[in-house]
Design a protein around this nucleic acid. Sequence first.
DNA 1: TCCTCCTATTGACATCCGTCGATACATTTG
DNA 2: CAAATGTATCGACGGATGTCAATAGGAGGA
Lengths: 110, 110
Amino acid sequence: MAKTKIAEIESCCSSVLTTTLSEQEAVDLARGYAALGDPVRLRLLSMIASAGECCSCDLEAPLGKSQPTISHHTKALAEAGLIVGEKRGRWMWWTIVPDGVLALRQALAP
Amino acid sequence: MAKTKIAEIESCCSSVLTTTLSEQEAVDLARGYAALGDPVRLRLLSMIASAGECCSCDLEAPLGKSQPTISHHTKALAEAGLIVGEKRGRWMWWTIVPDGVLALRQALAP
DNA sequence: TCCTCCTATTGACATCCGTCGATACATTTG
DNA sequence: CAAATGTATCGACGGATGTCAATAGGAGGA
């Protein structure tokens, strides 16, 4: 909980628009935005967020993509720190990582 | 000015996290985030924002990229609606489009 | 144990993307 | 007009990426 607050404060102070980014900062942030730079991944994130929690198998049909493709995209979002998965029985349940999204949001703050 | 306010209000109501995105909304938003998904473009945006206004020729050296590459990236950011260029004499001056950045920021609002 | 179901990984393919040299365009200056 | 300068476009190359069929891994049920 304390860590969350610190992360929030820090991300507040490193906006793309108010400070000139270093090479490393740019690489890290770009990785996050790149994860959002695909329509399928955006809808995936949207569905998980709206549902609060979502199982992989429920994402295939609405998006019209194959199972490997969905798995590929969930992995990409997870590696970007935007979602996290928990295996329960045979099912993989995905939830949003608020801090991950927040960091990308704050980086665009004026 | 009134238009700006409307845009702000509208973008407030269509967050990725609170509504399930349609195919078209996802495609449009993804285009914007994809524009941010490159370290060079992020630093470019950052430099333009920090300087308030920036000429193409001043972006090459700090980023260590060739002139065609810089031109390529400024075009990408411009087509994403994040910067706009104005030609004055031989020089191209770039400025941030606040509404463009705002839309991407608001789309990540909780 | 064997079968079924959900997920992850692999391999392959087509496409997109970042990069730069060469070149064309546009504008100022001599 | 001619030369110089800043910018955009073209062509090409290597690497990254989205997609799916096939396959492997893993957990629960008959």
